[in-house]
């Protein structure tokens, strides 16, 4: 009798080298871990280790392919860096996580960049700048709300921006992303290398990305540190007055500059507002 326990053990053997070794050297461990009956254990052990190993490689390869699709340049740099050893540790771990399902491959890029952020000391400097930038591009490509917002804007082209009174609460529209970066990611070569990342001059600031309806690539705008900070706070929870307090304090000149930036972004329909 072959039941669900068999499938659970089988799937886990296909994603774990140590479990595969245990299956042949310490089958009792596998049997008790998954509650297999004698028939199930025998069936699982009937497969030759070579064919399981081949399948393990194919399964890992699919995860690599998903990451290469959303973060192509980041992955190319990681391959150059250590031949994908670091990526391999992520993939081995990701394969055991039920929240990362291949039915929704777009979620993998976000998770991988969050993981890379936690590995900052182990990865090439500035790689995170590139990874976050590529993730924003991939995110805009797959996000339904971004596509709808871009389409609405294409239809209502030329409509004026939101009115920014002191009590208005600005937020970035769904077709926009902001990425902070320590270098000019837009100046990196199309095929980025470790050397190109290392040679990039420091340039704190960021990029504003806007999805264009019917286009696979968004529009990119270089923005300065002050604009990045301002935009990242535009989440619909803070009023214009609060935003100005946060980024400019009491300095009248700074406040005026920040307000002009907000107005400019609203005029470009990057910002919309909520009023209470």
């Amino acid at each position: 009798m072959i039941g669900p326990a068999f499938y659970e053990a089988y799937a886990n053997v296909l994603v774990s080298q140590s479990l595969l070794i245990a299956l042949y050297r310490d089958p009792d461990r596998v049997r008790t871990t998954y509650g297999l009956n004698a028939d199930e254990l025998e069936l699982l052990r009937s497969a030759s280790p070579a064919t399981i190993q081949l399948s393990q490689g194919i399964i890992r390869g699919k995860r690599h392919a998903v990451l290469e699709q959303s973060l192509p340049q980041t992955m190319a740099v990681l391959r150059e860096f250590d031949g994908y050893r670091l990526v391999g540790t992520y993939v081995d771990d990701a394969l055991l996580r039920p929240d990362l399902d291949m039915l929704r491959p777009a979620t993998h890029g976000t998770d991988f960049v969050a993981w890379l952020t936690r590995q900052e000391a182990r990865i090439p400097p500035r790689l995170l700048d590139l990874a976050r930038f590529e993730l924003a591009i991939a995110d805009l490509r797959s996000d339904n709300a971004a596509a709808s917002a871009a389409r609405d804007k294409a239809v209502t082209a030329g409509a004026g921006g939101a009115d920014l009174g002191g009590e208005a609460r600005p937020w970035m529209t769904a077709d926009v992303r902001v990425v902070a970066a320590s270098i000019d990611v837009l100046a990196l070569p199309a095929e980025t290398t470790l050397a190109a990342l290392a040679a990039a001059p420091p340039r704190p600031g960021g990029v504003l990305l806007r999805k264009v309806w019917d286009q696979p690539r968004p529009l990119f705008h270089r923005i300065g540190v002050a604009t990045v900070e301002l935009l990242l706070r535009c989440d619909g929870r803070h009023t214009v007055d609060q935003l100005l307090d946060q980024v400019a304090g009491d300095d009248a000149g700074h406040r005026e500059g920040a307000l002009a930036t907000l107005r400019g972004l609203a005029g470009l329909t990057v910002l919309s507002v909520t009023r209470e």
Binding site: P4, E8, A11, I58, I59, K62, L96, L100, M102
Partner: peptide, 9 residues
Amino acid sequence: RAGGVSLGS
């Protein structure tokens, strides 16, 4: 997929 593992294969 089985037992919380998404094989993608």
